[in-house]
């Protein structure tokens, strides 16, 4: 069940100092994503985690080049196999998307065309990118649907999206995104709309894919449980910036950013003993954007001191090296004096 260890090799995707600004006439521009950097190697799964509005989905859309041109400025660098994508032409992006990089969205019903049978939608990718003829393509589509665990694929190909259950639709979408064995798969909350038993099936499918095909997977989610089981590295986002990155065991055992710690303490856990109090984070993330000075989390943070607050510090708290494989954006992080305390390794404390 161990997720694939990152294979050696150059990263498939390198994102550097990515920033996305939305501007509207007569309004101050909103910088939804600011200075985000990460990379993904083949066979590696990384997680972008955060609450709604933290910029995780905008990041993924910017990587795929799916943001509208009007009113949006994307700066920084996104390199796919060494090829720069920011500012790249539409034709090049179109050649890559669906073939070398693919995306699975949250809501499977609205990402499928309701008036076109599943089969046509799956074969479309094959006809476009793999230059198959219709016969070959529909044979391949059967194989793909079978691979993602859709029963009776021949019949399902003729059906329309509304005839499939939520889990089936998400499988069909995954089948489409896998049609050309992409080297990079971005999954944006792929299981949020699904029931837990179906979620477990889909996560198992994604895990298997990464192991079998060496696809690099970027998992975007708000669910820390999903991240814990799936991702090798985790980047926690808040108000458009990465505030902590670490290898998953490290992150869950010793969260350093008070926000990460707060998130973990505020989630009710199935395996915690009853009566374990939840320690919520005060306030809400709603007004944290734009992050122009100091630390955007400071007003909600228990560790915050004067130099975190906007008025005093002036400059933005930088993302800095924090031990091997870890990066942290915080002036007063959570400290772990000796070995990891039992409080965070709840499995042991139980």
């Amino acid at each position: 069940m161990s997720a694939a260890g990152p294979l050696s090799g150059a990263p498939v995707l390198e994102v550097e100092e990515l920033a996305v600004t939305f501007s509207r006439k007569g309004e101050a521009p909103v910088r939804a994503v600011d200075g985000v950097s990460f990379d993904v190697a083949p066979g590696e799964t990384i997680g972008l985690v955060g609450e709604s509005g933290c910029g995780k989905s905008v990041t993924s859309l910017a990587v795929m080049g799916l943001l509208p041109k009007r009113g949006v400025s994307v700066t920084g660098s996104v390199r796919f196999n060494g090829q720069e994508l920011v500012g790249a032409g539409d034709s090049m992006l179109r050649r890559l998307r669906g073939a070398d990089m693919a995306m699975v969205f949250q809501d499977p019903l609205s990402s499928l065309n309701p008036t076109v049978p599943i089969g046509t939608q799956v074969t479309e990718v094959l006809l476009e990118h793999r230059e198959m003829d219709r016969k070959e393509a529909s044979r391949e589509a059967v194989v793909l649907l079978d691979k993602v665990g859709i029963p009776d694929p021949v019949r399902r190909l003729k059906e329309y999206p509304h005839q499939l259950s939520g889990g089936m639709r998400q499988r069909a979408l995954i089948a489409m995104s896998l049609a050309c064995s992409p080297r990079l798969l971005i999954a944006d909350e792929p299981t949020t709309a699904l029931d837990v038993t179906i979620q477990a099936q889909i996560l198992e499918l994604l895990k298997e894919l990464v192991v079998d095909t060496g696809t690099a997977l970027v998992m975007i989610t708000h669910d820390l449980g999903v991240v814990a089981g799936l991702c090798d590295r985790v980047h926690v986002m808040y108000a458009g910036k990465i505030i902590e990155s670490a290898e998953r065991h490290e992150l869950f055992a010793r969260p350093r950013q008070p926000y990460t710690g707060g998130l973990l303490a505020s989630v009710p856990r199935l395996d915690a003993s009853r009566g374990t109090p939840l320690r919520p984070i005060r306030g809400s993330a709603r007004d944290a954007i734009p992050w122009t000075q100091g630390c955007a989390f400071a007003p909600r943070c228990d560790n915050a001191q004067d130099d975190c607050l906007t008025e005093v510090s002036g400059e933005i708290v930088p993302l800095e090296y924090d031990g091997p494989g870890r990066e942290l954006r915080c002036r007063h992080p959570l400290e772990y004096p000796q070995a990891p305390p039992g409080a965070t390794a709840l499995g042991a404390a139980r």
Binding site: G225, V226, A228, G229, R248, L270, D271, G347
Partner: peptide, 13 residues
Amino acid sequence: MSAVPVPDPVVEE
């Protein structure tokens, strides 16, 4: 219950 993800990699594994 076995399908609910737990935010702890050790338990998850």
